[in-house]
Simulated assay, not measured.
Amino acid sequence: LALDVTDPVSLGTAMEQIADAKLQIDLLVNNAGLALGVDKAQASSAENWQQMIDTNITGLAMVTHKVLPRMVEADSGMIINIGSIAGTYPYPGGNVYGASKAFVRQFSLNLRADLAGTRIRVSNIEPGLCSGTDFSLVRLNGDLEAVQALYRDVQAILPEDIAATVAWIAEQPAHVNINSIEIMPVAQSSAALNVVRNLPRA
C-alpha cells in the first residue's frame, strides 16, 4: 500500500483496505522517517522541524496505534522500529532529528512495558552512518556534492545490513525479544565531549 504516514486520512484508508482484505499484520517495520537540514537549532527552519516531528514521531506513533490493537487481539506480532544513533549521541545540527529518534527509543521501551503479558515483541534498531539511500540527499536538500563528500573514503553500513538485521530479529524464537540494536560502520565511533576554550565569562 502506498500511504502518507503524516496524513490521518491516508493512513485510515490503508488500514481499511487491510481490514477489508481480512489481512493480519504479523510484522510492522516502522521505517518511514527523515532528517531535514543540518543547521544549528537557532538557525533551523520551523517547517523542517514540523515535518520531522510529523513523520518521525507522530507518523510512527499513529501507524503503531492503528496496528497494535489487532496484534493484541491475536496475541501475536512484532514491531521493529528504525531509530538512529542520533537518538543517543548528540551532534551539532542534530537537534529535532536526534530528539525524534530518542522518542523512538523510549517509545519502543514503553510499548514493551505496556505489552507485558502478551506475546507481542518490540525492537528498536539504531543505525549509524548508512549509505545507499536517499536519506542524506533529502537532508542536504539535493546537494549531491555534499552527499558524496559525506561518504567519501568511508565504508558505511548499507541498507542491506539493516534489512539483514530486521530479518535476524524476526527469525528469533518466540520467547526472545531483542530490545535494541545499535549499528555503526567500523569507520565510525562516538566522539569525545566538546569543550569550548576561551569562552567569555558570564
Rank of each mutant, 00 (worst) to 15 (best):
L193T: 13
V38S: 14
V38P: 00
Q148K: 15
A174P: 01
N81D: 04
M52R: 03
S10A: 04
A167R: 02
P127M: 12
D4C: 06
D20Q: 13
I162M: 08
T118H: 08
H65C: 01
T88Y: 15
L28T: 08
D26H: 11
L68E: 05
E160T: 01
M62G: 05
A191T: 09
E16N: 12
L68C: 05
L111P: 06
P159M: 06
D114Y: 14
N48W: 13
R201K: 14
D134S: 14
G117D: 09
A61H: 13
E160I: 00
V166Y: 07
L129R: 05
A102S: 14
E160A: 10
V63T: 11
G87L: 03
D26T: 11
A21H: 10
D4G: 00
N179H: 10
F103N: 09
F103V: 09
P69K: 01
T6R: 15
L34A: 08
F135E: 00
A14Y: 14
E182M: 10
A167L: 03
L115F: 12
V122K: 04
L3D: 01
N81Q: 03
G98N: 02
I157L: 08
A174L: 07
E145Q: 14
G83M: 02
R119N: 15
I169L: 04
G77S: 09
